[in-house]
Design a protein around this nucleic acid. Structure first.
Lengths: 224, 224
DNA sequence: ACCTGAACACCGTTCAAGT
DNA sequence: ACCTGAACACCGTTCAAGT
């Protein structure tokens, strides 16, 4: 009893692969992926770092599990919706999930072994398109362009110098003050668009998404 | 004379920030970004790791410089082309550059301080769109959707389990054998499309690119 | 079956000391 | 002005030893 009270809350439950991966995601969300070490993760779980190796083979496998867990949070397209609504819905869901776990997008480049949740998601997307009347080849095209857009937007959003929503005007102004001459078009766009009240980079998402969905609708009906 | 001969070739020239950054890019290209350490980079340059700190403040600044160097390799839109050709050209150029330096796309998530080459490139892109008849707001939309697509496609390409071009049939077959029941649509797409002779994921790039360019052309002429 | 302490070969970075 | 050796506080991972 007294012994148990000395340990962190998380240590009460038994360790498992899932608990390890979940704790790693929580740690990366809070402190950033660069702060995720086996020692720190052990500490967060009330255990020595070496104990983690009973549940994951190595750090690479842990990272694979984290990416797959993030994927599992994205809405899977349902059977009963038309493909366009379903694709819109999962694209919006994906943006939210990747904004909550911005480190995941940077991890995807180095993690080439997709997990079960990732495969399940991909399968559901392709299935939705096939049932929506897309040929195999056209489903592959649609899958490629939609996923590129979703991940690329998330990458740009994670990449913003200011925090996602409203631009911090001081920062932008400071940058621009020294650079207005060198980058006239960037300056124009920043002053007349980005720094306008109510601007949110996230609003750009809908424009591109609808552009792609409309394009796909035409391509489905009139294959090249 | 004898002394000089004992040192690696690269050490002959004087160290500079540019040489350090270039050597870091070369090392990351050859051995992967995870192999890039200050000690290893020093070794490649025939110098102790600590000498590097005379030219870059820390490793983060080195990574910033590497990303900016990669950006400088992408074709900048020229003045004399119509916007559509110019955007097509720089998109194709960007894919090649990011395929040569696949670690760069994963780095972008954590590097939020754009360098001069990055800013110059962005300025040229926006300028090309403005001169091509896009309003400020529409140029921002176009910029966002094109860059999302370019980076997202590069991210997916870096992410492929097989090496970019042709799929290694054995690997794909092995995966599918165990998973055909769980992922029927993914199986169909893989067998009937990906594993067909001559398939190259890179071919998907043109489809999405033309879809987006066509959509932008309409949006420019009939703003919502 | 699970956890740990000590150890190994690495990291990024500092600082005083050399030239 | 530039480079270095030693040192510090970290890493991921192994292995034999504990329960």
């Amino acid at each position: 009893m007294a012994r148990r009270a000395e340990r962190p809350v998380e240590a009460r439950a038994r360790l498992s692969r899932e608990r390890v991966v979940r704790a790693a995601v929580a740690l990366a969300d809070e402190a950033g992926i660069e702060s995720l070490s086996m020692r720190r993760l052990g500490e967060a779980l009330g255990v020595e770092a070496m104990s983690l190796y009973n549940h994951v083979a190595n750090k690479g496998q842990l990272l694979d599990g984290m990416v797959d867990l993030v994927f599992s949070e994205i809405d899977t397209p349902a059977d009963d919706r038309d493909w366009k609504s379903a694709m819109r819905r999962r694209a919006i869901s994906a943006r939210g999930v990747l904004a909550r776990h911005p480190w995941a997008i940077g991890l995807m480049e180095s993690r080439t072994t997709p997990g079960p949740a990732t495969l399940r998601h991909h399968d559901a997307v392709i299935g939705c398109l096939r049932r929506g009347g897309f040929s195999v080849a056209m489903a592959a095209h649609a899958f490629s362009v939609l996923d590129s857009y979703i991940y690329g937007f998330a990458l740009q959003e994670a990449n913003l110098p200011f925090d996602s929503g409203e631009a911090t005007a001081e920062l932008a102004q400071a940058i621009l003050a020294q650079a207005a001459d060198d980058y006239p078009y960037l300056t124009e766009l920043t002053v007349e668009h980005v720094l306008q009240p109510g601007y949110d980079f996230g609003h750009e998402y809908a424009f591109g998404l609808e552009l792609i969905l409309t394009g796909l609708e035409h391509a489905r009906d009139e294959p090249a």
